[in-house]
Every structure is written in structure tokens, then in C-alpha cells.
Simulated assay, not measured.
Amino acid sequence: MSVLKTGLAHPSRMRGIFRYLLHAQGQREKRDVLERILSPDKLVEHLASEEKSKDKKTSHPMFNDAIRESIKCQLLIEENEEVTINQNLPKDAINPQLGDKLLADTFTYLFFTSDNEDEEDFGRVCAWYLAQDIYDAPGTWEEVEKRISEQKVGDFLKMSSSRLFVQMDDWMRYLGFAWGHTLGVSGEKLVKVTVPDPTAYIKRNLKLLFDGEQEITIQDFINRLAKQCPLFETGKFREEVESQIGTREANFLSTSTAFALFRLHDEGDIQLERQSDSAFMILPKVNNQVDNDGRISHIIWKGEKS
């Protein structure tokens, strides 16, 4: 079972456990001590009373689900009744000063790039959402349910309830593949929508993607991006999705990836160029900032901002 289907394995809860262990002695703690610190009995009893639970026993479902998924994805390891951060992760990922900042990318690697079979359903759902037209993307569960039906991918995605959409939404926002906003109020209810936009993820990983180079071809950039995170074009999960909903036109990027690159261009992080006599890819929905009809051959990284 993936984090998509474990409703209490919220990113903030898994992050809370990780952040505590980052600064614990030896980056380890006895499980029962960790449970008492992060999920005190009094808090659990209060929540149970609010929910009018018939089970009077103190249980810690949020903690247990979060730590189980953290162990299953190998962020954490449990041995001899102790829980510790996986010391086989990259050094920066477990550095007390950097680990929390890098955690979203650590999760992305553990979920999608490390051949984690438990998270393959989550990878397909995320890749499917990023493959939607960003200018007409389903932003609510009702719209997602309708789009899944229209594209006939219900059996493929297995997104059968609003609870799964909420879980997808929380994780994609945290990982940097989507963001949300409020449209307004309908009756007494806020109308919130989600937008598939991987700008935050790509921005965080520009240094890694350019790998010491300042200028690379758009094709090299996309290949590196797909290797780093197979939710993107030519990556494992995106290709599985496109085999179900139809492949993109040759040399075209999806609108969500194109939108992210345009944003990064506008914000001064990269420069998009069409150089003569060079192979190009087409970024649909061109804005006025790129004077080449969306035909891009090279990307220039402007460097880290202070």
C-alpha cells in the first residue's frame, strides 16, 4: 500500500518524525519514546473524544501510519525497537542543517526513482495529473473523477474516492508538482482548486540538472529531468500514462512542463533560446516573453541566486 492509499501518512507527519530524528543523538530513538513525544496519549485521547470513538484504548493511528510508510520507503529503518534515519541516503539528505530542506526531493527519489513497487500507483497518478492540460486541468475531486471517466483510465489509476484525491493533492503540493488556490465561497464552503505545475520541483533541481554546465540542449534537459524524476516526459511513469491517454505530438512538451519552464524563464532562473541549425522542441501556449513561437533548442542556467 502506498502513501496515496494510507490516508494518515500525511507529508507533515512523516516530515515531523524525520525532523525529530535529524537532531536526535545518533539520529535514532526508541520507537515507544518517539511515539510518546510525537503522539502524546493526552492528544490522542482528546481526538478520540472529539470523534466520539467507542474504542477507549489509547492508540496512535497517525503516528503508526506515518512511521510505517517512512520505514517502508526506506527513509527510516527500524531495528532492535529503535527507529533511525537510513544512513545509506546521500550525506546531504541526512545532514541536520540540510536534511529538512532536501526532504521533498528525498521523498521524490524514494517514491519514484528507486524502483519502489509500493509507490507505483502513486507515480502513475502524479504522472497522469502532470500530463493534463494545465490550462484546463481538473482542479477538484469532482472534475478529476469526470476526467478519469472521459479518458477511461479508472482501472489504470484506481483513483476511486475523494480521499485519494486529497492525499494526492497534499503530496503533490509538498513535493513541488502542484499548487492550490481558493476561487471563492459557495454557500458556506470555500471552493479550492489544484493546479498541476512542477515549477517548484524543477527550480529546486536546476543545479543538479545542469551538472556543472551553464548551457545544455532542451533534449538533454528533458532526458536528465526524466532520469531524475520519471513523472516527466520520457520517464517510466509518464510513458505508462501516455500509453493510456494518447502520446504527445513529436517534439512537443506537455503544457505543465512548458508552463514551468516559461515561469522559470520569466523569473530569471533560466533563459530559453532557439539557436539556428539546432534541433528543437516545441513548448505550447507561448507567452510574449519568448520570441520564437515556442521552438526551443537550448536552455541556459542563470546560476544560483543569493
Rank of each mutant, 00 (worst) to 15 (best):
Met1Asn: 12
Val3Phe: 02
Leu4Phe: 06
Lys5Asn: 15
Gly7Ile: 12
Gly7His: 12
Pro11Asp: 04
Pro11Met: 08
Met14Asp: 03
Arg15Cys: 00
Ile17Met: 02
Phe18Cys: 00
Arg19Thr: 11
Leu21Cys: 02
Glu29Met: 14
Asp32Tyr: 11
Leu34Ala: 01
Leu34Asn: 04
Leu34Trp: 04
Ser39Glu: 06
Asp41Gly: 11
Leu43Glu: 15
His46Ser: 15
Lys52Asp: 10
Ser53Ala: 11
Asp55Cys: 07
Lys57Trp: 04
Lys57Ser: 13
Thr58Cys: 10
Thr58Asn: 11
His60Lys: 07
His60Glu: 06
Asn64Gly: 08
Asp65Cys: 10
Glu69His: 05
Glu81His: 15
Glu81Thr: 10
Leu89Met: 05
Ala93Ser: 14
Ile94His: 02
Pro96Tyr: 09
Pro96Gly: 06
Gly99Glu: 00
Gly99Lys: 02
Ala104Pro: 02
Phe107His: 00
Leu110Ser: 01
Phe112Met: 02
Ser114Thr: 14
Glu117Cys: 09
Glu119Ala: 08
Trp128Gly: 01
Tyr129Phe: 15
Asp133Phe: 06
Tyr135Lys: 12
Asp136Cys: 11
Ala137Pro: 03
Gly139Trp: 03
Trp141Ser: 04
Arg147Trp: 09
Lys158Ser: 08
Asp169Tyr: 13
Gly176Pro: 05
Ala178Ser: 15
Gly180Tyr: 12
Leu183Tyr: 10
Glu188Gly: 15
Leu190Cys: 11
Val195Lys: 08
Pro196Ser: 09
Thr199Glu: 10
Arg204His: 04
Leu209Asn: 03
Phe210Gly: 03
Phe210Arg: 07
Phe210Ala: 05
Ile216Arg: 01
Ile218Pro: 06
Ile218Ala: 09
Asp220Pro: 03
Arg224His: 00
Arg224Thr: 04
Gln228Ala: 13
Leu231Arg: 02
Leu231Asp: 04
Phe232Met: 01
Phe232Asn: 01
Gly235His: 03
Val241Lys: 01
Ile245Trp: 03
Arg248Ser: 13
Ala258Lys: 00
Ala258Phe: 05
Gly268Trp: 04
Arg274Ile: 10
Ser276Gln: 14
Ser278Gly: 09
Phe280His: 13
Val286Trp: 09
Gln289Met: 12
Gln289Gly: 15
Ser297Cys: 10
His298Ser: 10
Gly303Glu: 08
Glu304Lys: 14
Lys305Val: 10
